[in-house]
Amino acid sequence: MAKHKIIMNNVSAQIADKAILNNISLRVDDQEHIGIIGPSGSGKSSLIRTINGLLPISSGTIEIDSQTITASQPSADCSKIGMVFQDYALFPHLTVLENLTLSPTLRNENSTRDIKDRAFSLLDKVKMNGFGNRFPASLSGGQQQRIAIARCLMTEPEILLLDEPTSALDPEMIHEVKSVLEGLMQSQLSIIIVSHDISFIKTTTNRVIFMDEGKKLSDQATDLFFTQPENERQISFIQQLDH
């Protein structure tokens, strides 16, 4: 069981000479669900962006299965890593079905028939049956986010990165997306989720990482995180949450 899926060693990253990640080491096991929390601008999103290569790292190494990412060797094989963005980022010129099938079709992995079948079953899973021929612009935010989740599952990823999947949504829509995400959390994927929704993190993750100013301040099992905080910053953050 204790096979490491992702191993990050002393990873740092910067954007235009401003350090945003500072010497972070992290291990993610197979089928482990990890939540990352922390104040805005603490580098949570940047951390998961380094894993699928959206943000190049400046030092350290990231090992994903057998593949190693370093500063000089940035490109990763993204097919095992799926990512869901805060603002859905669906392709506006393609229909829902085309959004789902584009990436697998371009990689010629399966026959078109199989890809379509898979797309329909995933649409079913996110409760978006019958929306295949609609354009993203005609859907609500919650519907778009569910499509985005289905789209990233199309490539059959082993690791799932969720970057604040519910932050851009109205309260009503959050509910429908959360029910889909809860279904996902039952699955056998390694999942890293960045979210401000503490109750959701509490119920669905095994481990919580607390970050501030680009540093990893604590890394505890979920139940311990809220009951036995490790350091001052974390205590004040949790107190803020209660109010």
Binding site: L54, C78, I81, F85, T155
Partner: peptide, 12 residues
């Protein structure tokens, strides 16, 4: 830029 990011995340 979200379009570019999501394309990259999907490996296109």
């Amino acid at each position: 830029y979200h379009q570019h990011e999501s394309a990259k995340a999907l490996g296109i």
